[in-house]
């Protein structure tokens, strides 16, 4: 009946509801571990190529417990945070302007798509030459690969503002700036948030790749060291990979929870208009 609300939940979404997807994800991880354990038990692979889960778990504890190794992990995290902050600070304002000014939309989209097509590996030698092997180089490469993503999402978010809402704003005679602040920005937020969440995952991949290929520090550097330097430590190498997975999981879940909490309408709209 018309007089009944479809959902009795007022306002913000409860935490447990927001955690539903991550919990399902954990279940998947559990199944994966089980399969892994079964494979190593059955002697299908040599333990030097794939150590059993318990050895790797011990490796994780060792890496996290050791101050020197922990510093490497934190180095990766720091690079990730820096890259995200810079990426958002650069791409969101640019995207807002490019999306809001109709004349700039098409040209900027063309530029973005062209730049996005440049593969990261092509930039690594230049970056190393200019910035060396440290955090700056990692951050620079990461920012240059995630900014496009955030920029694109921001432009699309801004340009897909509901025209009816712009009409409402017009009927209230709001100024251009007010419309941008009160209508365009909030309606673009869900897409911007999605862009940032995906960029978070991509950033981690990029940092790890760069660390494995070129850098002198970080989690990726550890992984390749344990795998290549004699005596090799496959359990530690795998432990590094597991830690990477955990970092990825934490950042993704964190963004999901933030999104459901601060841009709940994006999920609502997704439900209404599939």
């Amino acid at each position: 009946m018309e007089a009944q609300a479809k959902a009795a939940r007022p306002g913000r979404t409860p935490l447990l509801f927001a955690m539903r997807d991550p919990l399902l994800g954990l279940l998947g991880v559990g199944l994966l571990l089980l399969g892994w354990w079964a494979v190593t038990r059955g002697d299908l692979v040599a333990s030097s190529s794939l150590p059993p889960p318990m050895d790797v778990a011990r490796g994780v504890v060792h890496l996290v417990g050791d101050g020197g190794y922990r510093a490497e992990i934190l180095d990766t995290v720091r690079a990730w945070v820096l890259a995200m902050v810079l990426g958002v600070a650069i791409a969101v304002p640019l995207g807002l302007v490019a999306g809001a000014v109709a004349a700039m939309r098409k040209p900027s989209l063309a530029v973005v798509h062209a730049c996005r097509a440049v593969p990261l590996v092509a930039l690594i030698p230049v970056a190393v030459l200019v910035l060396g092997l440290g955090t700056n180089m990692k951050v620079a490469l990461t920012v240059s690969s995630i900014s496009w993503l955030i920029l694109l999402n921001t432009i699309y978010g801004v340009s897909s503002t509901e025209p009816q809402l712009l009409t409402v704003a017009k009927s209230l005679q709001w100024s251009k700036v007010t419309v941008l602040r009160r209508v365009v920005l909030p309606s673009a937020l869900p897409m911007i948030a999605t862009g940032i969440r995906v960029a978070g995952s991509v950033a981690l991949i990029v940092i790890l790749s760069v660390e494995i290929v070129a850098a002198g520090s970080g989690l990726g550097h550890l992984i390749i060291k344990f795998q290549a330097d004699i005596p090799t430590h496959p359990d530690y190498a795998y432990a590094g990979i597991v830690i990477t997975g955990v970092l990825g999981f934490i950042q993704y879940t964190g963004f999901m929870v933030l999104e459901r909490r601060f841009v709940p309408w994006s999920h609502a709209n997704r439900r209404q208009r599939p």
Binding site: E2, A3, Q4, A5, K6, A7, R9, P10, G11, P264, W265, A268, N269, Q272
Partner: peptide, 14 residues
Amino acid sequence: KTGPMYPWQLSGGM
């Protein structure tokens, strides 16, 4: 009690 709810939590008539 509809005051603090979001519009998309209401029926069309509401």
